[in-house]
Design a protein around this nucleic acid. Structure first.
Lengths: 202, 202
DNA sequence: TCCTATCAATCCACTACAGTATCGTATTTA
DNA sequence: TAAATACGATACTGTAGTGGATTGATAGGA
């Protein structure tokens, strides 16, 4: 989770107090969920976790990195997408995405990860641990649909994957609340975009 | 552009130095384009514009609002989308979007506008002046295609519009450089999503 | 076993920035 | 003349991030 020290290699010097990591991540996760990313104060987190800001900076390069790690500590795995109907899997995946991105502070963190000033290390971790798995699951769903023959064999899946989650971001950027049936409606559009049949039941 | 004073109404008190507005917007635009949003320092802008931070805060509620206004001052109108082929218009619109969002600092500003802490006034202006026109033009293109009968009459255009620009945001969030043919590929997918025919030339 | 290098923890101080609040002075309208 | 506003200047709070100094803990070598 944290910075440099790899757990198994024995190095000289005082060992890190792992309880600090746990306490800081717990407190940061609470603050992140309760008040959002911007309101996350490292001084407040350190104080409430019973340590100092320097202990935080020793473990994480900055606020964004800590927030990303705190987010991962509370992240759950995505849904199992192995039903008979890939479109159903797609909608389920988008519903899971909707649930996650709707939590307080999550969209703000997305915004942070789009900014140039965000530490590359934090961005890389976020992309690897949050974005990439989601993209992989979406791609797997579409690939299976391709193998079954439900969608075009030469469909542009690389772009199609970006349509799925991108729709949410564009809606939020427009200042609109995505409708409750967003997963189904977006799933239906993407499904058609890659050549899927419009009606499900023949 | 700036804050409260409506231009025509005569109010008591010293009149504002309009040259300050011009100089600040010019300098802010330069800094924004050269170094991005986060590196935009209000103190540096004020100093380089030959005034003080207070003059800035008198005109704009905060950094985000100033940045949004500086962006608008250099913004150009979108392309004319009145060709015979709506899909061509769609691709042209996405190409224009690609050009704008690729400028330095623009994606960072998008990220800022997704964050909770951004001043609502700045978000509202950004949405009204940048996001809404783009959405309106995209929607107009799709509506015309609907009227011509090229796409489904009951297509979900509200979601379809979000797919267009959202694809770019999702790609950037994943840490990937959108391909040069992104406008055409995204336009093709969206076109199909709303029921458009796949091949153009019969 | 003692010594030393290395690293962690804590405390303190510093810079830079966003944002807020006054204060005195200048300028304009009523 | 009085009220209202802009301007410049100064100062303040809170936060992110950096650096130094001291003390405590641990490894490996003499």
């Amino acid at each position: 989770m944290s910075s440099l020290p790899s757990t198994s290699v024995k190095r000289p010097g005082r060992v890190r107090d792992l309880s600090i990591d746990e306490r800081v991540l717990a407190v940061a996760g609470q603050h992140l969920s309760a008040r959002g990313y911007e309101a996350l104060s490292l001084a407040a987190v350190a104080s409430e976790a019973g340590t100092t800001r320097q202990a935080l900076y020793r473990r994480w390069p900055g606020k964004a990195s800590l927030a990303a790690d705190a987010l991962l500590a509370a992240a759950a795995a995505g849904p199992e997408n192995h039903s008979a109907d890939p479109l159903e899997d797609l909608t389920a995946e988008l519903t899971d995405f909707q649930r996650g991105v709707s939590l307080p502070g999550r969209l703000s963190l997305v915004g942070t990860m789009l900014q140039d000033a965000t530490a590359p290390e934090a961005r890389a971790r976020y992309q690897a641990k949050v974005v990439a798995p989601r993209r992989a699951r979406l791609l797997a769903i579409l690939r299976r649909a391709q193998n079954i023959g439900l969608i075009d064999p030469d469909a542009d899946l690389e772009i199609a994957v970006t349509l799925c989650t991108g729709s949410w971001y564009a809606t939020a950027l427009a200042g609109r609340q995505p409708p409750p049936d967003w997963p189904a409606r977006t799933g239906a559009l993407v499904w058609r975009a890659v050549g899927g049949a419009q009606g499900l039941s023949p």
